[in-house]
Design a protein around this nucleic acid. Structure first.
Lengths: 216, 216
DNA sequence: GCTTATTCTCTACAACTATAGAAAATAAAC
DNA sequence: GTTTATTTTCTATAGTTGTAGAGAATAAGC
């Protein structure tokens, strides 16, 4: 399980010296260092030297784990989505309808320092993705997943009577997704330290819009 | 009016040779070339050499007009906002309430190739602004203006009875602004050529949400 | 302690970038 | 045509970056 990074672990007569570091784990450490550097110094400040130093290594130490910088960055960016998606899964587990939708959005919105930092990582990613189709696909896939999840919640909420607007779910899901993305920008561009952007109130307001006071 | 770029146009006895190029105009040309390069090759591809060539000049020709690359980029980025704001002013002139709000949003949304290109320029700007407070302020100022404009429209629309939701205008304005920003990301990251993202339908849907069918 | 494969450090290098500034080209005024 | 200031080209430079790869350091098994 450990010998995955290099193809050198050939069968050797009797003695087999095991690898000391778990390559997969090391890659995650390096991704973490990359995130910290990007969040602190931006994409321009994320040089291989800087990242290595942040991880506690010297210049060339990343090579065995990521053959190229682009490999590292792409892996790092993918992992932001992975982590967010995992948190979403945890938070929405067992929930349905409007409750699930609320939990979903509250997890994506940059409501605390940690997620504001993630916003500061996602924006450089978007910038790269604008001119790198391979990275754009990574984004697109997660967005498609999110759209599907949102629409599932909306459908359930309609069945439960919590959503009864005449506006169709396709439009609603698009609105909500774009709101979530826009919130990342607002949070990432704000001066460091600000954490209260009223995004949670915006969300509650939006969800309230979906329920027309039909019978009153 | 022309001698603004350099401070060399000193009083000279009798003969005064006029400058041939209008510095302000030239700056705009250079900004245009910068936009084209960024939209086509991304921020990484926007080197001084590349920009100069795109504008039809050689390597050092930009210096008299922009002493440094950062100056050029900042000016170029500011101008995206300027241009958008001017278009907004034209389109919303004479309009009020929901009509003005609709016109405003339709102008900001990336509904055609030109504005999709602008989205491809704004995202690199945001990326720079994340770690450059001076650029972040440029963004913030326009966003504050936009928020104010949106809330003015909402108030007018309420007075006209076109908006009657219980959700307060502050939350609504925030939602709408974030929707507009998010739409830029979706458009900029899509493969070149796509132009229909349903953003206009999303907008109509959102505006419909603001009008509760109270008396029916 | 010795061997061996892995892991890391460090130096080197080629490519590229922003910028500076000398020199050439240019256009107006005489 | 000559002069003069402006405009542009072109070469040079200092700095940075990703990457390569030799060698040192390291840790496990004997």
């Amino acid at each position: 399980m450990a010998h995955k990074g290099l193809g050198k672990n050939i069968f050797r007569g009797a003695v087999a010296v095991p690898k000391i570091v778990d390559h997969d784990e090391r890659r995650l450490e390096l991704v973490d260092a990359t995130w910290r550097i990007i969040a602190r110094n931006g994409l321009e400040g994320a040089t291989m030297r800087e990242i290595a130093m942040e991880a506690g290594f010297a210049n060339g130490a990343l090579k065995p784990y990521f053959p190229t910088k682009d490999t590292l960055l792409e892996f790092a960016f993918s992992h932001v989505f992975n982590r967010t998606n995992q948190r979403i899964a945890e938070v929405t587990a067992g929930q349905t309808g409007l409750a699930a939708l609320r939990a979903f959005c509250l997890e994506v919105l940059p409501l605390d320092e940690e997620r504001i930092n993630e916003a500061r990582i996602v924006i450089p990613f978007w910038q790269k993705a604008v001119n790198d189709p391979q990275k754009a696909v990574i984004h697109q896939q997660s967005m498609d997943e999110w759209l599907t999840a949102i629409r599932r919640c909306l459908k359930e909420a309609r069945d439960a009577g919590d959503v009864n607007t005449g506006v169709d779910d396709r439009a609603l899901a698009g609105q909500l997704l774009n709101m979530l993305l826009g919130a990342q920008i607002e949070a990432a561009l704000a001066p460091a330290g600000r954490t209260d952007f009223g995004h949670d109130r915006q969300l509650e307001g939006y969800l309230a819009l979906l329920t027309q006071p039909s019978a009153r």
